[in-house]
Amino acid sequence: MLEFGIRIPRYWRGKPFRYRLEGFRCEECGEFHFSPRLVCRKCGGKRLRRDKLSERGRLICYTVVKSASPSFEAYTPYIVGLIQTEDGTMIVGQLTDCDPEELHEGMDVEATIRRLQTDGESRLIAYGYKFRPAIQRP
């Protein structure tokens, strides 16, 4: 059986989105793509520019993952949520710095960077965004 885990170049390429919520937005119709695209998936437009999602959003719904793939099994249980960012984009990601009881649908959340997994014999650490309850600002 082939091993699951982090392939370093592939992991490296995904950093802009995973670290900074940076992707590509279509100049024609505004569709956001998490990875570099040559063509907009929605309108077929070919002019896409680098863009960053808002780091603040609203929690639409969430679930607690009780069993996970080998790469994530050590972190169970963990919370996974569907978030609508302030610019209206829906994204999924883990929730952190809170217990499930502290969460409710519709609450404000913000992106932060955290360890996602530690992989393989070399203990390579993969970082990426997670959302946490928004710290109330005056």
């Binding site: 059986m1 699951f4 592939r10 992991y11 390429r13 995904g14 989105f17 995973r18 998490f34 990875s35 679930t63 993952v65 069993s67 996970a68 793939s69 080998p70 790469s71 994530f72 099994e73 972190y75 963990y78 996974v80 999924v92 990601g93 883990q94 996602l116 997994q117 993969a126 990426g128």
Partner: peptide, 27 residues
Amino acid sequence: TAEEHLALTAMEEREEYTGQMGVHQAA
């Protein structure tokens, strides 16, 4: 294994996005 089974079903999602976030198909 059962854990690998969860990783396999994640192959039917975008590995570079939901896969790397630990969001498998059941989640």
